[in-house]
Design a protein around this nucleic acid. Structure first.
Lengths: 236, 236
DNA sequence: CCCGCGCCTTGACCCGCATCAACGCGCACG
DNA sequence: CGTGCGCGTTGATGCGGGTCAAGGCGCGGG
């Protein structure tokens, strides 16, 4: 079966929505799906355009962004491998989706994907659960954007990124300083946190100066004192 | 049938999720549902508590809010009649739900509601669509919170509220000045927009002074120049 | 090799909004 | 009838973070 072969080498087969389908059911999706490579900076979906596609992210990092008429930008979400992209049941896309790194997608025509969704209740339920999770995350970010100071935003962001980096690298229980690379430029971090690039830079050097983190160079960050960082992220 | 009788006098029978069910199917929900009255200021769900219930809002306005450890609050959503409340498939509630006015709910035990959801695919699909819409709205608010000035926030908020008031009162096509009541105090508006009460007050008087709106008293607002308001909400 | 460009940092300045404070109004309550 | 309280307005002041500007790395390309 060609279908299974294509999915068989899929790096996110069990993590993506498809994980809810049996090998047999997978064939329906496979007939529809098509691999697409994106290079860094490339945009797959433009806000306002007709909502034509849905996709699973296979590798790389994507940003979901909105912007004002006069060009200010806000990143409203980040997508990592196994995440679902696109907006079923909507005629137009509300947000722009752009690759932050080279990336690979498994793309489906929206209408046909909706049909598959209707035929496979377990997948639809999984999508509902993920959408709820995304909604909770978005609302958490609203608290961050509306009520937190620059220092709290940066500290919280670094903790989030460390957790994400840690979960894949799995140094969970290690208590010593951990080092990881941010997948974002300073400017992109600013767009996530609702700050300017200068403020991001200054807050990071401030944290470095107080010994809470280290900045070995490039986009690397070292957490030297996690509890101090937590204290700054969420002051009692 | 008692079941139908209870739902028969339901003010949101066709607008809420239940609208996707036939009279016959409705009986399953009715066996579960229970009316609950809330008085202004009362909280139904506390962030962090176990997620026990789901509900449809029959009348009134509710706020969904998050807060920092040191007490700063952000309203992350508002609920109006026919809206669905609660979080299926989650063990704990992430946000607090509080009545801004006296309100009436149709409450279901969460676990049992999930079962009904699984038995009625059309309802589950409708919930998925609504959750997508809520997610899009939340993300739109992230742009507002992260990147807009106080003046833009207030102008946009007033336009939103006017649309909502207008849709029920249905003076859609009338071009003259329209007047409506805000269901929120200045403090609550501040919590929605990520501002302080003083800034909300000052921006409103500024709009009044420039003749764009009128403030007849109480919580009433008159839109005198909608296009000027739109210009301030979204500067080119 | 040097140039240019993207990314980051740092400094000086200033403005928008938070903060602190005082006061007016309407209303429930003793 | 006064008193207190919730809500809104207004003013004075200060600071956090935005804005503008200059310069430093690292790297790819001519």
């Amino acid at each position: 079966m060609a279908a299974i072969e294509i999915c068989a080498d899929c790096s996110v087969r069990d993590l993506a929505l498809c994980g809810s389908l049996t090998d047999h059911e997978l064939e329906a999706l496979n007939a529809l799906g098509r691999r697409q490579r994106l290079s860094k900076g490339e945009t797959v979906i433009w806000a306002g355009d007709e909502s034509i596609i849905c996709a699973n992210l296979l590798s790389g990092v994507l940003k979901l962004s909105a912007s004002t008429a006069d060009g200010r930008e806000q990143i409203v979400g980040l997508h990592y491998p196994a995440d679902f992209i696109g907006r079923p049941y909507a005629d137009a896309a509300d947000f722009t989706v752009t690759a932050l790194t080279d990336a690979e997608l498994c793309v489906f025509p929206r209408k046909q994907f909706e049909q598959v969704l209707e035929d496979h209740v377990r997948m639809e339920r999984l999508l509902l659960q993920r959408t709820f999770a995304a909604l909770d995350e978005a609302r958490g970010r609203m608290l961050m954007l509306g009520r937190k100071s620059a220092e709290e935003k940066i500290a919280g962001f670094l903790l989030d990124m460390a957790d994400r980096a840690g979960s894949s690298a799995c140094r969970a229980t290690v208590e010593g300083p951990i080092t990881f690379d941010l997948p974002l430029t300073r400017g992109q971090i600013a767009d996530v946190l609702g700050l300017t690039i200068e403020t991001v830079s200054r807050q990071m050097t401030k944290l470095k100066a107080s010994g809470v983190i280290g900045l070995p160079g490039g986009r690397a960050v070292t957490l030297r004192d996690r509890s101090a960082l937590e204290e700054r992220a969420e002051p009692a």
